[in-house]
Design a protein around this nucleic acid. Structure first.
Length: 765
DNA sequence: CATGTCTGCTTACC
DNA sequence: ACTGGTAAGCAGACAGA
């Protein structure tokens, strides 16, 4: 038995019956060491609990701790059954406690002192970007009905790609590509893929938890073959939002979930989460695409099969490239919130925040509140909190606009006013002046754990942002991005009904203070002679008239002197022109959350318009974009009208691609009170024997077949004709009418245009 | 049986 | 396992005539 030191990156951590397992990676590969560690919970030291402990035996008491002025016993968790009425920290994963108590961080470099496999000492020696052996993979199926049927449609290709240049497509039908790996049949294909994947430390897929891995497993089972990853059974957990695949001995990472988190946090914006769109958004180039309907046909053709192989490989490569680009961000998320890589497979922003608050609570000796009971959940779900202020804009076109923004408004309010369930209405007389417009006041003597945490993160982010100005380092950029995502989720902790830190009063105080601060800006700006045209939550749009940029800068500086230290008003940008439109439903009332701006460099920013929505067809969205661009850039209404005229002509002449007419809508439920086009299209597909999972995004088009729009709706793949009138009157025209209207163009005229068009009269004139 | 209004539903903004 | 409030707007359902 010799003691030795081991250094390596902590890539995984697990707990099982009194033991913690740390998975470490270094030059000699991956190894796992264990530490004796008992999961525990806290109970308050009082007579009732003393009696229970006496019965249980003192050996179950691991420690005594002081938290928030009370004494707690730390009780060894042997099983879930015990008599304690109130327990704390009992449903926090043991591995998380271990990480926090030993001050070690996933993805950091650790120094272990071990004896055999047993850990004697563990030390975190700092930040490190681990280079892991990563391979991406993807499968293709032969699915004549587009949506694969697992008991019928075979897997025809399995592709993979890795950093070391390893790439290939496993197939049992030749495609004459040098990267193809020929096997005998599907069963061998699956096994070959396993061999390949298991050579690596991390396997990355895109939607692989919900599709590729379950499909591979079921096909393997059907063919009496084997699909294996790592060293234990693959565990599939079904959630409402998709499936989670858990492996051990090898890390499976599904990029899809991270993408969803980033999309929720507004870090990426795409219409759909398809690999193609995500690749374009993140990598900035187009990815090879194949028409779904022709895939079987291409596969069946000996000459064309190679193209399908190219496509299959391009999927694996795209997945790999996205992973590599996001890798610094992934690592930072793991580090900041102390979550091992595999846990990101099922992550939400509230979990990131919770994880951070666990750590800070431990550090600052705060008791971690428990999760709510079912009753509390019910009570909480009844409570409503009034949110942010949104100003109704005057429709029209504006010149010289300045947009001001509060930097991290809600987090900075939390810090400025020390908002926390534990500081709420503290009883101190001198704290009563720190009162919110909703009537709650917050302690000014003792800091709450949430303000402490938020303040730390805010100042860290500020520091990193300054560093970033000097040195544009991707790692720092990733940290800034990760911190932004986390900071924006803190406010949600107060009103998320399942939150441990739920507080209606805190949430209410934040939003009422937020409204007060933003309305104060409006008042001050008007006093200074600016005109406030629009506001939403933390942003203010001013028209400058004959005022200069310096005047705006001066105004912002003055404001910043008056508001609390932690808060800051910033200039988001100056715009030379902007468009606000009427609501479609009510004449002359401006629509909120809908605007288009062009800055001094010609860069366009568009929010809320149909063109950013996936439930409008691309044809109408493109038309709207062109119209907005021409108005913002050239200010020419004649040209804008000409664009619409031409687009309608194109529709009539059949000059469009089918995919430009597809409308995407998510089917969120299996049962509806009303028939919608997407549900009707889904039903028709189901009658054809196509299974579309609930939660899918349905792509449908409107055909000539039927009376109502729902009757005419058909899943894109099965549609052969298109109701052009629908696309003119319900898509293209509604998307541009209000914009041209804002430009002073008479709406009747344009509508008349539309009608004339529908009679087919003005192609000639 | 047209017409206006309400309802159910999805998506976007912050 | 889901930050949630503010808002727009479509298509279908319904109502009073």
């Amino acid at each position: 038995m010799k003691k030795m030191k081991v250094r390596g990156i902590l890539i995984d951590i697990n707990y099982k019956e009194g033991k913690i397992f740390l998975t470490i990676k270094n030059e000699s590969g991956i190894s796992t060491f264990y530490d004796d560690y008992y999961d525990y919970f806290y109970v308050e030291k009082n007579d009732e609990n003393n009696a229970i402990i006496n019965k249980l035996g003192m050996e179950n008491v691991l420690d005594e701790v002081e938290l928030e002025g009370k004494t707690f016993y730390k009780i060894k968790k042997v099983n879930e059954e015990n008599e304690f009425y109130i327990k704390y920290a009992h449903n926090i994963p043991a591995w998380k406690k271990y990480l926090i108590e030993n001050e070690i961080t996933p993805m950091n470099l650790l120094e272990l002192e071990v004896e055999n496999d047993k850990i004697l000492e563990v030390k975190d020696v700092g930040s490190y970007i681990p280079k892991l052996k990563v391979i991406s993979f993807d499968i293709e199926t032969y699915a004549p009905f587009i949506i694969p049927r697992v008991n019928k449609d075979p897997i025809i290709f399995a592709s993979y790609a890795s950093r070391d240049g390893e790439k290939g497509v496993i197939t049992f039908k030749r495609g004459n590509r040098d990267f193809e790996l020929l096997v005998k049949d599907e069963k061998e294909l699956i096994e070959k893929l396993c061999e390949k994947l298991n050579e690596y430390e991390v396997i990355v897929g895109y939607n692989s938890s919900s599709f590729d891995i379950p499909y591979l497993m079921k096909r393997a089972e059907k063919l009496n073959g084997k699909f294996w990853l790592g060293n234990e059974e693959i565990e599939i957990k079904k959630l409402t939002t998709g499936k989670i695949v858990r492996t051990s001995g090898i890390i499976h990472f599904d990029l899809f979930y991270l993408i969803r988190l980033l999309a929720n946090a507004q870090a990426i914006k795409t219409q759909r989460y398809s690999l193609e769109e995500i690749y374009e958004e993140i990598i900035g180039e187009k990815k090879m695409d194949l028409e779904e309907e022709k895939m079987c046909e291409i596969y069946d053709s000996d000459e064309k099969r190679g193209i399908y192989l190219d496509y299959s490989l391009s999927d694996a490569i795209a997945t790999y490239k996205i992973f590599e680009k996001l890798y610094p961000l992934i690592v930072e998320i793991c580090k900041i919130s102390k979550i091992p890589l595999k846990e990101l497979n099922n992550i939400t922003s509230s979990q990131l925040v919770e994880s951070l608050l666990f750590e800070y609570s431990y550090k600052y000796k705060f008791l971690i509140p428990n999760r709510p009971s079912e009753e509390e959940l019910l009570e909480r779900s009844e409570e409503k909190v009034i949110g942010a202020y949104v100003k109704i804009p005057e429709p029209g076109i504006y010149e010289k606009i300045a947009v001001l923004d509060f930097r991290s408004l809600y987090p900075s309010i939390i810090v400025a006013h020390n908002i926390d369930p534990k500081t709420l209405n503290c009883g101190h007389k001198e704290c009563m002046k720190n009162v919110s417009p909703s009537g709650s006041y917050f302690c000014i003597k003792n800091r709450g754990i949430i303000p402490i945490t938020v303040e730390n993160l805010l100042s860290l982010r500020k520091k990193l942002k300054e560093e970033l100005k000097k040195n544009d380092d991707p790692l720092i950029r990733a940290r800034v991005a990760a911190l932004k995502i986390i900071l924006n989720s803190f406010y949600g902790m107060f009103r998320y009904v399942r939150s441990r830190w739920y507080s209606k009063e805190c949430a209410e105080s934040i939003t009422t203070w937020g409204r007060k601060y933003i309305l104060d800006i409006a008042k001050k700006a008007e006093e200074k002679g600016f005109k406030v045209i629009y506001m939403d939550t933390d942003s203010t749009f001013l028209t400058m008239g004959n005022k200069s940029k310096e005047d705006v800068i001066k105004f912002v500086e003055e404001v910043n002197k008056e508001i609390p230290e932690a808060m800051e008003l910033e200039i988001e940008n100056f715009y030379k022109r902007g468009v606000f439109v009427e609501k479609k439903t009510k004449e002359e009332i401006g629509a909120r959350k809908k605007y288009a701006l062009i800055d001094e460099n010609g860069k366009i920013k568009i929010r809320g318009f149909e063109l950013v929505r996936r439930d409008w067809c691309k044809f109408a969205r493109d038309t709207q974009l062109e119209v907005l661009e021409s108005i913002l850039k050239e200010g020419s209404k004649e040209k804008a009208v000409e664009i619409v005229r031409n687009k309608i002509k194109q529709l009539r002449e059949g000059k469009f691609k089918k995919e430009d007419l597809v409308i995407y809508t998510q089917l969120r439920k299996g049962k509806y009170k009303v028939t919608s086009p997407e549900f009707s299209a889904y039903e028709k597909a189901r009658k054809r024997g196509i299974k579309i999972p609930i939660g899918s995004i349905i792509g449908y088009v409107i055909t000539k077949n039927g009376k109502s729009i729902s009757e005419k709706a058909e899943i894109a793949q099965f549609a052969n004709d298109f109701d052009i009138e629908y696309y003119i009157n319900n898509q293209v025209l509604p998307a541009v009418l209000k914009i041209l209207g804002a430009f002073g163009y008479s709406e009747e005229d344009i509508k008349y245009y539309g009608k004339q068009t529908s009679l087919g009269e003005w192609e000639n004139g």
